[in-house]
Design a protein around this nucleic acid. Structure first.
Lengths: 100, 100
DNA sequence: TATATATTTAGCTAACTTTCTAAGCAGCAC
DNA sequence: GTGCTGCTTAGAAAGTTAGCTAAATATATA
């Protein structure tokens, strides 16, 4: 949880996540979206990967980055603890058996 | 959003939020739960208040702290952007009008 | 093989954060 | 008033982080 919140505690890294929401991108394409040196962006990507918020795959000379949703789910669960009256995630069920 | 994630980026502050989940507490009672000086806890409470994650009210010589849920909702909305296929929050509706 | 491109690593500095102790302020009780 | 309790503010030390440039690594291409 610690490494997760640390990764999220930076506007640039949160923007990177928002970019990746719309599809995978190479490290260079991500860097081009920011007014910041490539090594700095590379460092941010490293932190996001450490937190497992993104995954990276080497494609030839490029490195493709993608969002990892499962960790985002984990954070949402943490936040849900503060909402005890929230509707729980429903188990999928057969609609026609409900009022049998 | 920045100040919010900054406030959440600390294990002590997250623990304070979890304590307050179960009910309001005075600054002193909160401090007693941690192996840390009172001024340090006071500082953490200050950051949580700056982020609007908690509210404080003076009660005589005590200061009562309480959770503020509305900001937690705000964060959840931010996270939801990454889950485009999630079930949207349902508008309350009359169950018996659905299949009219 | 040489060269260009894509990305990361290393090493640095400035700024920020966490923690402490000491001191201050406010309310309560005598 | 004086003193006690509860809490915050101030200031300093130690550690962490974000950004930079320079250099290294890896792949593609001529």
């Amino acid at each position: 949880m610690n490494i997760l919140f640390r990764a999220l505690n930076d506007a640039t890294r949160r923007e990177i996540l928002e970019l990746l929401k719309d599809g995978d991108m190479t490290a260079g394409d991500i860097a081009d979206k920011f007014d910041m040196s490539k090594p700095s962006i590379s460092h941010h990507l490293d932190l996001l990967r450490q937190a497992d918020l993104v995954a990276s795959v080497k494609k030839g000379q490029f490195v493709l980055y993608s969002l990892n949703m499962t960790v985002i789910d984990e954070i949402m669960v943490w936040f849900m603890q503060f909402k005890p009256n929230a509707i729980q995630a429903e188990k999928p069920r057969n609609r026609f058996q409900v009022y049998k």
